[in-house]
Design a protein around this nucleic acid. Sequence first.
RNA 1: UACCCGAUGGUGUAAUUGGUAACACACGAGUUUUUGGUACUCGCAUUCCAGGUUCAAGUCCUGGUCGGGUAGCCA
Length: 595
Amino acid sequence: MNKANPTNEDTNNHSTEPESLDFVRAIVAKDQQTGKWDHRVHTRFPPEPNGYLHIGHAKSICLNFGIAQQFAGKCNLRFDDTNPIKEEQEYIDSIIEDVKWLGWDWQDRLYYASDYFEQMYQYAVELIKKGLAYVCDLTAEQTRQHRGTLTAPGQKSPYRDRSPEENLDLFQRMRNGEFPDGSRTLKAKIDMAHPNLNLRDPVMYRILHAEHPRTGNDWCIYPMYDWAHGLEDSLENITHSICTLEFENHRPLYDWFIDSINRDRPEQIPHPQQIEFARLNLTYTVMSKRRLLELVQAGQDSNWDDPRLPTDQVSSWDDPRMPTISGMRRRGYSPQSIRNFCQRIGINKFNSTVDFALLEHCVREDLNKTSPRVMAVLNPLKVIITNYPANQTEQLDAVNNPEDPSAGTRQVPFSRELYIERDDFLEDPPKKFFRLAPGREVRLRYAYFITCQEVIKNENGQIIELRCTYDPATRGGDSPDGRKVKATLHWVCANNAIPAEVRLYDHLFNKENPSEVEEGRNFFDNLNPDSLKSLPQCFVEPHLKNAPPLSRFQFERLGYFCTDPDSTADHLIFNRTATLKDTWAKIQKQQKNQQ
RNA sequence: UACCCGAUGGUGUAAUUGGUAACACACGAGUUUUUGGUACUCGCAUUCCAGGUUCAAGUCCUGGUCGGGUAGCCA
């Protein structure tokens, strides 16, 4: 960037200039360089199929798949399906769809923890034989009492010193289904006084007579996460096991498990390196699967047969107000915008909360470049062009995307009766209001200059129609005499317009941190009652008649919109993804504050 | 009152590993404009505190302060 010396190093600089690496990538880069893992890079995204993926998962997905891509490595998709009570096939299907939609590819490496159950069982047998694991008959409650507290050491289980032979027999019988749920567990024999509670003889297996989505009734004992997870990574020969901060305290346990398996073992199993990063928090939303599930369940319990959409409740996992990937897809977010967002927020080890405005910026940035422009009127106000021939319709050329010349042009019909946006007319305009007002001339985009001559009201004094004149010489929107107008309005042709329903969305919660609640209240109290506003009687230009579901547009001057999956040619439904930045709204707010 | 982790503008991240705080968002002011959009210009932090090492500290050392995590047969 040295302007005085543009000749030499300047030219090849940007290619060699090292982008700064986040701390995870820095570790991966170093390991790859030193050959720690034989120059391999192999990551994985390991969701539990107990809910839908959200934007926080996208951060992890982009990290894991992104690292694999950047370092010419691989990334597996693996379901961590070790708890059949909470997991469902529906979730598996949605997760596969969402990761794919985000644009990542795991090729043939779709794995399931449940595929490793037999191998895990054998490893457990090895630990029992080494005297490092035992079957314990304590109840859950007793186990808790024996664990001690954060400051006090625990006590040893009375079953801790059973012989390997007895343990082997009992463990086999646990597997055989001879014991009821909760009656016994397999525990690791570590140290009941360890300052890290995770090492106080953690449970490895519990008895659960539950049908598993994949293994059916093959098993009635299921491995605990701590036991299973490190083994899954080891079995897949993962190099870098990237996870979130709350598992930091568990790392010593994973290390213990693998080291213990490897002790005196002729064939050593791989020992991946775990790296923890901070999960994503976003303003005005919640990001835990538990809370998202509560929102969905609350919505399902309510009466959705009511034709009015309940505005303070969410309809489903893919409700456009949800921070789920499926919700954002339905809302109109592009995969690219989500990936850009995940790149911008960075990776760190401390908790932080990203401003929702950054997400919005990322969608706008992407959709500005990619989405075709169309005209739609949300709150119609009829305009009659009194000096325009009554039975005439003409076609006017409109640019599809000023940011992308290759998007070309289309034709929009124009005739005597039009609709404009109600907000674009004020009978008594305040300062800085540039739009239509009595006697004022504005431009109709790609059409003509019009001047408001008369305001028609009903008996209640409400404005129901405007009578305007147009200047035929300004066809297309340019005035040959060079006179200026201060505003350009969008519009639709009344007898060609297509009715549509438009759903406007706002933050799901009206508090930056919805989890922050008064004593005795919960996050439901922070739900934004105005998060959904449905406008059933809008008009869009005829071009949109056959817009397929999930197609994205910019409604000029209004925002980005996406056809809902339920949208049909007979009943068009658009979801607002985001508004355009609105300088006028800002000015209005300022004027209000000054008064 | 235990153990682990962390702390850079309003927000999220950088800083060639000891060399004079950079980028983006947000906010504010302007220019351009057939979207009050986009684009562009300008403004906005002496790096939690206190000592120390050093010619030089956001970076290293010591001690504080504050924040997060951990006591599921959840993940």
